[in-house]
């Protein structure tokens, strides 16, 4: 069991608590979390990523209970085991594509030689030395996927990865995420309100109805 989230509840305002459905994902399994904007999808993702402590319940990744880890331990665990992709690419602008990936290696404390091969698999091998400002929207999103994959995570979390892309790029990005997750036997969770993604992953839950 790679991802197990049980009995999670959370609130920003104690009068409006919300429960999060239990999630169990095995190696290579995929899950689509659907919901309108403001339905708490991103909050769920942050809780799963170890970025936001839930008020109750337990998240465990590959047997490690996420919120029993403290401070630096949690940060390092996240860097090593969880790859996160956002709606916007958020590539660090002063660094080149390659350096962005090297930084992910550095912070996770992993030394890998996967940078070139990951970039090539995603079709942006030739952009290795480019700065983010010289990339198209689609290319930038691929770089952010490459950054999430470079540490060979067990769990890939994607928050609205297709929202700012056109149809063609959106389809390509979803396919890439699926292919890469399958290839590396990682669990994949995509949070979205984008109807275009629906047909690609059959395992779905809907929140905030």
């Amino acid at each position: 069991m790679i991802l197990k989230a049980e009995n999670i509840s959370f609130y920003y305002d104690a009068n409006q608590p919300f429960q999060i459905p239990d999630i169990r994902l095995d190696r290579g399994q995929q899950l689509l979390i659907l919901g309108r904007s403001g339905s708490g999808k991103t909050t769920i993702l942050h809780i799963l990523a170890g970025l936001l402590q839930p008020k109750a319940g337990e998240v465990s990744i590959d047997g490690t209970s996420l919120y029993t880890l403290k401070g630096t331990q949690l940060d390092k665990f996240r860097g090593k085991n969880i790859g996160i992709i956002f709606q916007k690419p958020h590539i660090l602008a002063p660094l080149t594509v390659e350096e962005n990936l090297m930084l992910a290696n550095y912070f996770a404390g992993k030394k890998t030689d996967r940078i070139t091969s990951v970039l090539q698999e995603l079709g942006i091998g030739h952009k290795k030395k480019s700065l983010v400002n010289n990339l198209s929207e689609g290319e930038a999103q691929r770089v952010s996927i490459a950054r999430a994959l470079v540490n060979e995570p067990k769990l890939i979390l994607a928050d609205e990865p297709t929202a700012s892309l056109d149809d063609q790029n959106a389809e390509a990005v979803v396919k890439l995420l699926k292919d890469q997750a399958e290839k590396h036997q990682a669990a994949l969770v995509i949070v979205t309100h984008d109807q275009r993604v629906k047909n690609h992953i059959s395992n779905q839950i809907t929140v905030g109805i």
């Binding site: 401070g71 630096t72 940060d75 958020h90």
Partner: peptide, 16 residues
């Protein structure tokens, strides 16, 4: 701030 948050998501500790 956003860059810093992204660094945290890829494994940087607050001390770093």
């Amino acid at each position: 701030k956003y860059d810093l948050a992204v660094m945290r998501t890829i494994g940087a500790s607050s001390g770093q």
